[in-house]
């Protein structure tokens, strides 16, 4: 029992802080998305001179926002699900059902992380961006196209974070089943809907 709590506490602490960082970057990403999209409207409509890169830059930010923020939603119970059965079952049975569902999710994620790794490091990741460049010299004299893998890494990172959250949630359910009650709660745990 104490052992279980001793395992969960550090994992919980790590997740808490990693996800906080992820949310911070995600918030910056949203701000950039809005800014570059508005910049494009301004350049096209007012200056009659559209820019080539805002579209891709905004998508870049949206993908990273998703990868970095979705794990927080998962941890807080914000993934859409029909939870009637778990609510109808007695506590112990519900915890067992939840563990089963979490293991199914974990299986999906473990497959996904393997495929994601080979996709991101594979040929598709080598495609050069059509409009995004980074400087390769300190004096900005040489620029290189951003490879698609930088964008694809967003989902891979998101899946790794989801796995870490998933493991924590499984352990918490096991702890609940065994009657461990003195765990730090997940802040802001609630459900939120898309509509």
């Amino acid at each position: 029992m104490a052992l279980l709590g001793g395992v969960i506490r550090p994992i919980s602490w790590i997740n808490e802080h990693l996800l906080m960082l992820g949310r911070g970057v995600g918030i910056i990403a949203i701000a950039v998305m809005v800014a570059v999209t508005l910049l494009q409207v301004f350049c096209r409509y007012v200056l009659n001179n559209a820019l080539p890169w805002p579209d891709e830059a905004a998508r870049f930010c949206m993908l990273w926002m998703t990868g970095l923020m979705a794990p927080t939603a998962f941890r807080r119970g914000g993934f859409v699900a029909i939870d009637m059965l778990a609510l109808a079952l007695p506590r112990a049975a519900a915890a067992i059902l939840n563990i089963f569902l979490m293991v199914v999710s974990l299986t999906v994620l473990v497959f996904a992380v393997q495929i994601g790794w080979s996709e991101t490091t594979g040929l598709g990741g080598r495609f050069a961006s059509a409009s995004l460049y980074i400087p390769t010299a300190i004096d900005f004299s040489e620029w290189q196209r951003v490879p698609r893998s930088w964008m694809m890494a967003s989902l891979l990172v998101g899946i790794v974070l989801l796995i870490m959250v998933n493991v924590e949630l499984i352990l918490r359910n096991v702890a609940q089943l065994l009657g461990v009650t003195d765990l730090p709660p997940i802040p802001h745990a609630d459900t939120q809907g898309a509509e």
Binding site: A29, T66, A70, F79
Partner: peptide, 18 residues
């Protein structure tokens, strides 16, 4: 503003994954 963007980001991340 940060709090507002955080809330919007969390909800839309779930929808986008879906």
């Amino acid at each position: 503003l940060g709090d507002v963007m955080g809330r919007a980001g969390l909800t839309s991340a779930v929808v986008l994954l879906l």
